[in-house]
Amino acid sequence: MRALWLLAVLPSVAVAQDFSTLTYGCDRGVQVPATYVNGPDQNLAVIHVDGRQITLVGEPAASGARYGWPSDGSGYVWWTKGDEATLYWKTPEGETPLLTCNAG
C-alpha cells in the first residue's frame, strides 16, 4: 500500500528542485539519516529508523517542520526546528517522544 502511495506522489517529486540530506545524532547513540524533498505541492521527509525507511508527509506546524503519516491511527512523527529534531510515536491518545536528535 505504501509503495502505491509513493508512486502517486512521484510526479510532484520529479519536478522538485529542493533536496537535502542530514544525519542526526540522537539519544542512546542512534543515528537517523533524513532526506527532505520540498516540492511545489507537497513536502516529504524520508528517515531511516529501526532498520526501516519511513516516508512521512509534511503536516501543519506552529513552529518548525512536522512530518507524519496521514492517518487517524498510530505512526511516526518527525518534527524539526533548526538543527534539532524529535521522533514521536503518535496514537489517537497522543504523542510519545522516542528520540531527541541534533543535526551534524
Rank of each mutant, 00 (worst) to 15 (best):
L22I: 05
G82T: 07
Q31Y: 09
A45F: 09
W69I: 03
A34M: 06
I47E: 01
Q31K: 15
D83C: 12
I47Q: 02
L44K: 05
G25Q: 07
S63Y: 15
V49G: 12
G39K: 12
G73F: 07
A14L: 15
V49L: 10
T23C: 03
V77M: 06
L87E: 01
Q53K: 11
Q31I: 04
T55F: 10
S63N: 15
C26L: 01
E59N: 11
P70V: 00
T80Q: 08
V30G: 00
G64L: 11
G25H: 04
S20K: 08
R52Q: 15
I54T: 10
V49R: 06
V49M: 12
D83H: 09
T86N: 01
R28N: 03
D72T: 04
D18K: 11
T55S: 15
V37R: 06
G64R: 06
T80N: 06
N38D: 14
G68P: 04
V15S: 14
A16T: 07
T55D: 11
R52Y: 03
F19K: 13
F19A: 12
V49E: 07
D41L: 05
Q31H: 08
R52W: 08
G64P: 15
Q31N: 10
G68W: 00
Y36K: 02
T86H: 02
A65I: 08
A61G: 09
P60G: 12
I54M: 04
R66L: 08
L44V: 10
D41R: 14
P60A: 08
G58C: 13
G51R: 09
G73T: 13
T21N: 09
G29Y: 11
G73H: 01
V77L: 07
V13C: 07
A34S: 09
P70D: 06
V77Q: 03
H48V: 14
N43R: 05
Y76G: 01
V30F: 06
G82Y: 02
Y36N: 03
N43D: 15
Y36P: 11
N43I: 01
